[in-house]
């Protein structure tokens, strides 16, 4: 059984959501589509927090380590003596590692976002279901 509730009004949408929640409907069956983020929905529905930070942290740490490992290893492997500075000069290497921390952190976060949201969604790209500025609750009870 497929049900579809569309609302123009935010308050009506939220009260319907509360009603569904109180009924104890299975979370998996419900898809909520909103045109812009609403804090109230989170307060009512309590969706699982996004684990994206795991990706971010992993990316950033990987970038940091890569930065130091790469600069130190290659500087030792191919020693260039310039400016009276030690071959392994930590202060300048901090700059490279910092840049890589941000780069990897941002890119891995973006990749994590794509994985978690299962985007790009080919089907939605070609034939999107559009609800405009309406708040939609789709219920899919196929048991």
């Amino acid at each position: 059984m497929k049900q579809q509730y569309l609302f123009e009004d935010k308050a009506e949408f939220l009260s319907k959501l509360q009603e569904l929640k109180d009924k104890g409907i299975s979370r998996k069956a419900v898809t909520i589509l909103i045109p812009y983020p609403l804090h109230e929905v989170e307060d009512i529905w309590h969706p699982a927090p996004s684990p994206l930070r795991v990706f971010t942290l992993f990316g950033a740490l990987a970038g940091l380590l890569t930065g130091f490992a790469f600069t130190i290893y290659t500087a030792k492997d191919w020693p260039l003596i310039t400016g009276g500075k030690p071959i392994v000069s930590i202060p300048p290497f901090i700059i490279i590692s910092f840049a890589l921390t941000i780069l990897f952190g941002a890119l891995v976060s973006f990749a994590g976002f794509l994985i978690l949201t299962k985007l790009p969604n080919i089907r939605a790209m070609m034939e999107p279901e559009e609800y405009g500025n309406q708040f939609a609750i789709l219920i899919n009870n196929e048991e």
């Binding site: 909520i32 909103i34 969706p47 996004s50 930070r53 949201t117 969604n121």
Partner: peptide, 20 residues
């Protein structure tokens, strides 16, 4: 990317935007 605006998409999206 076939964005639909589902609640879970927004949850991940908001986090991503904050981190970026």
């Amino acid at each position: 990317l076939g964005w639909q605006g589902s609640l879970s998409e927004w949850m991940h999206y908001n986090r991503l935007y904050l981190f970026l």
